[in-house]
Amino acid sequence: MRKILIPTDFSENAMNAMRYGIDLFKYEISEFYFMHAYQDEIYADEASLTRETLEKVKDEVAKRSKKQLQITLKNINEYSPNPRHTYHIVSSNSLLMDEADRIVDEQNIDIIVMGTRGITNDRNLTFGSNTLQIIKYMQCPVLAIPENYEYTQPKHILFPTDYMIPYKRRELKLLCEIAAPFRAIIDMLYISRSKKLSMRQEDNRAFLKETLCKNTVNFKVANGRNIVDTVYKYIKENSIDMLAMVNSRHSFLENILFQSTIDEFTLHLDIPFLALQNMRRD
């Protein structure tokens, strides 16, 4: 059974991510957890908040959260009354990262699906702050859905890699199982000025080939100095409809996510982005 966590701030971006996740896993027996963490909302107007009014504000925000989640659940059931799917709602007086981490751990969540941006929707950023934090630090894969993206079956998936890290079988299995129902092609893109691989790279490449054996996998090489520009160009020239990258120490994705000028991240994605995590799950 697939377990999916979908955080929501009740924005249209969040609702769009929910619809995408439900459509993506429509063939699988799945449990969805729609979660709203509202602690930040309690303290949003600190100028007018006092000790005397704090409990009242907490109650009001909690009631509003639960009501909006019930409305969300009703809308989702109308959108997809899929007998393979079970829906749960979670309202929590906590921070998004803390509550997401708790649910991932307790429910052994397979993947988090969320919008690239939330209710603030700063169009100058590829990822909103909440999404960026989840991608950076969460221990399970994260699938980020761009604003207004209409669901399209992922038929052509791009996976940039330098073959330097031994990928986790669980993460690759997830990618394989996402791709398999749609007979998707996976392009493994090695970005380097040299085509020659070290022994370590050859071993990791062989492991990838074995683990993704259910799918058509193409091993491609691109000569480029700038990873982001090379990936972006490949997406546009090859009609890619999902980008997958691995978040790990010294990986392509880490170099992008942890650069000090993240606001200048030029890869303005207009396709779903799957961030796999190369770390041990507790």
Rank of each mutant, 00 (worst) to 15 (best):
V90N: 04
N223T: 03
K66Y: 09
V113I: 15
R281E: 11
M199W: 12
S251A: 14
K236F: 08
E150C: 13
M1G: 12
G115L: 06
K58I: 12
R2I: 05
Y20L: 01
D59M: 15
R193T: 07
D105S: 11
L96S: 03
S92R: 15
N255M: 15
E52C: 02
M35G: 08
Y33G: 11
V90Q: 02
A17I: 01
K220R: 13
C176Q: 15
A44M: 10
V221L: 13
I6Q: 02
T161V: 02
N148F: 09
C176E: 15
N130C: 04
M242Q: 05
E60T: 15
V217W: 07
T8F: 11
R183A: 08
F34R: 05
I89L: 07
L253F: 15
V104F: 07
N223K: 11
A100Q: 12
A184F: 11
I71H: 09
T161M: 01
T211H: 06
M164T: 15
T131V: 07
I109D: 13
P141D: 07
M18V: 00
A180M: 12
F34I: 07
S65A: 08
M114D: 06
K66P: 05
R183T: 06
N247M: 12
K56I: 12
T86I: 15
I4F: 08
Y137E: 04
D282M: 15
Y33V: 08
R84Y: 09
V104L: 10
A14M: 00
E106N: 01
M97G: 00
E52W: 08
D45H: 04
V228D: 14
T53R: 03
S260C: 02
Y163M: 08
Q39S: 11
I165K: 15
R84F: 12
Y79S: 04
F273K: 05
V142T: 15
K136A: 00
C213Q: 00
A17H: 01
C213P: 00
M97K: 13
N247P: 00
N77W: 00
K196H: 02
M279G: 08
S198G: 04
Y232V: 10
A62Q: 06
N238I: 14
Y20I: 00
L274R: 04
